[in-house]
Design a protein around this nucleic acid. Structure first.
Lengths: 220, 220
DNA sequence: TGTGGAATGTGTGTATACATTCGCTGCAAG
DNA sequence: CTTGCAGCGAATGTATACACACATTCCACA
């Protein structure tokens, strides 16, 4: 594999998993030595992260890992609403019923997964749903736009993580979306998506609120 | 100015103005010599064009300027609908009435511009409207997404260019959008945007149809 | 002691040389 | 005549060296 590709994947992982925390400065020499490659492919990786919005230029000198403020979360979800509703609409119009019936069956079984606290398996199922929706939407521009958004959403998982009751509710909401798409009902699919994202945002904001005002008022 | 920046701007211009036509292969050595810079900054410019979607990797070797098919136009407008309706909604909520009243006055005067065939001035006015809407939407993610779309739309101007009657109708549609935003009516702003984009798409597709089936059946 | 200027050091931007891989062409064999 | 393999060549991927800009620090002078 190309060195620039490995560097991009590694840095991206590190940022999404919060191993590189927001505000961390990424020097070219420093990172190229850490990853064992030269500056040229590293710069290519950093340029991609910059266009992803995962790092930002800080006043001429060096790149920093971007932060995710509460305000950012709300803005992120405004964009997500616009894109995913449109994708849901188009997916409902072009879907292969067999594919989405199969996904519906899996979502009906999802509560079982969650009772076993197998969150990773659930996230994997959601990822497959996203992929199926992307494919069914049959619109590469829409897919490109939503794909550029997903890394930022992955970073939010750390906030909403391990909230089992929310995941259970989310599974029910996902099921409704999948059933609407399977049935080819584009307006229901869009509305169900709207509802799901509204509930997700509400849950995340409530959790973020709790994290930023812990019991003893000590900021993180 | 940095060499990589100049190279990016130059190549982007060349593509948007159709001086580099779709399908043109961009070799690294060839282009770096043409622009008088070395391969390193040129590669950075090409990487940015790649993430913009203006060029695409062609089977491992070399980058080509992307084409814009009729199907692409429809997909582009699906995404544009989703984004610009959301921007219109949020702009209506956060707008400064003074700014949009002033823009409304300019759009009322727009038919005068168009009668004088001053299309460039009209496009400049639309660009200022876009900028005002972006700012008023107060959502950087939304703005980033729509900005990544605009280069592709600029390329379409060559198809719809010099259609005075369509521009006159577009000016009326824009006026309604601006008035709705100025009044803070977000649902009207969204619907007016929907109507405008629908009419624009219809016009472009009709023109594209004519271009692809000219009077004597000779393809372009 | 404080302020200004110069020098040094770190980091980014660019160029170029080297390595590697992929594609094309030509020849041979079936 | 077609197909497959091998060798060659060109274009991409990577490393490194050099240039320049900015910032910080230290020393000198007021």
């Amino acid at each position: 594999m190309r060195a620039s590709e490995r560097a991009y994947a590694a840095l991206r992982e590190d940022i999404l998993e919060w191993r590189l925390e927001p505000g961390t400065v990424l020097g070219e020499v420093e990172q190229s030595e850490r990853l064992g490659i030269s500056r040229t492919p590293l710069r290519e990786a950093l340029a991609r992260l910059l266009s992803d919005g995962l790092v930002a230029a800080q006043g001429g000198r060096g790149l920093v890992v971007t932060t995710v403020s509460v305000n950012d979360i709300a803005q992120l979800f405004d964009l997500r609403q616009a894109l995913e509703q449109q994708i849901a609409r188009q997916a409902a119009q072009h879907r292969d019923p067999v594919v989405f019936e199969a996904l519906a069956a899996e979502f009906r079984a999802a509560p079982g997964l969650l009772e076993r606290s197998d969150h990773a398996a659930y996230y994997e199922l959601v990822a497959r749903l996203d992929a199926a929706m992307d494919a069914a939407s049959a619109n590469s521009y829409l897919v490109t736009a939503v794909r550029s958004l997903r890394p930022h959403l992955v970073r939010l998982r750390r906030i909403s993580r391990d909230n089992s009751s929310r995941l259970l509710a989310a599974a029910r909401e996902h099921l409704l979306i999948v059933e609407a798409v399977a049935a080819g009902d584009s307006e229901l699919a869009a509305s169900a998506t709207h509802v799901h994202l509204h509930q997700s945002l509400t849950s995340i904001l409530a959790t973020a609120q709790m994290l930023s005002t812990p019991p003893e008022g000590i900021p993180a």
